[in-house]
Design a protein around this nucleic acid. Structure first.
Lengths: 151, 151
DNA sequence: CATGAAGTTTACGTTAACGTAAAGTTTTAC
DNA sequence: GTAAAACTTTACGTTAACGTAAACTTCATG
């Protein structure tokens, strides 16, 4: 087990190509906003919501590698359909439970919920697509009729 | 062509079983809210947004069959993923163009847009489902490892 | 030393479709 | 005849995730 500080779950999210440019160990808010292509407003918002707590040098925020990984996790969570509140729950859980067994179970529950909801959405979308096609046919039929009348 | 007042598109939306109980020809807001299982607040909201303009007897709203059909169309539009604004556009169009050739073409465009967006959504959801499954596997693996350590 | 880039806080604005009082009038029922 | 049910208007609240503007400080550079 080579875990130093970053949670196993966090480590899991590390993608291999990143290891190449392991140079910096502190970042400005602008650095991160550029790297992840989000606004600084967003990053400050995440802090507002209790998802990050970077150090300060005076007023200025200083982000560590750990913070950077957190941000990465936030964004991946978003892509997976987690709300910021849900992601925060996971973070809080890890904070109180380093071993994170609890966290993993919660995550599994969350994932299960998401999968269920997504499958439902999938079905709904299919149904609506069919309905739309039906309405479309009706429209086309009516349209050819109308243009037949008024050439 | 047996169109009296209701547009051909509106007529198209009429479902057959309805014709059986063709009794009333005016309705209260409560009648409609019960029939379609929505709140009176919603109905008044649709009026606010310019989607309906029922007559009044004093202060009280009186809805005709035509209004009822409109409401039905609004709700079907919602099920099909149209915003109220989009539905309003179609209504306005019919108001100015009884023959509604224009309306039909606009509708076809709208439907096409929706279908495209839905297909995209479908793909996105599939991708996310796969990602979720992957993350889930990772969690499970890690979990069995942890519980192996601390039995 | 000025100036422009990057950082900061505070706080209101946005979107969609209603929910939820509050406070009043009208209708219906017994 | 009165009390409950149904109707009305007005208007602020909700959700999520920021956008945007104002007004300020700090820093580096030519």
């Amino acid at each position: 087990m080579q875990n130093t500080n970053v949670s196993a779950v966090e480590a899991e999210f590390e993608t291999s190509p990143e290891r190449v440019r392991r140079t910096q160990d502190s970042f400005s808010i602008g650095d991160l906003s550029k790297e992840f292509d989000i606004t600084t407003r967003s990053i400050r918002f995440y802090e507002d919501q209790g998802l990050m707590m970077p150090e300060r040098r005076g007023q200025t925020r200083i982000y560590t590698q750990k913070d950077r990984v957190r941000l990465k996790l936030i964004l991946r969570g978003k892509r997976l359909g987690f709300t910021l509140a849900e992601t925060k729950t996971l973070f809080d859980m890890y904070e109180r439970d380093g071993s994170s067994v609890n966290q993993l179970q919660t995550m599994l529950r969350l994932i299960d919920d998401k999968k269920l909801a997504l499958r439902q959405q999938l079905e709904d979308i299919k149904v609506v697509l069919h309905e739309l096609t039906a309405v479309e046919s009706g429209c086309r039929a009516e349209l050819t009729e109308k243009t037949k009348e008024n050439p």
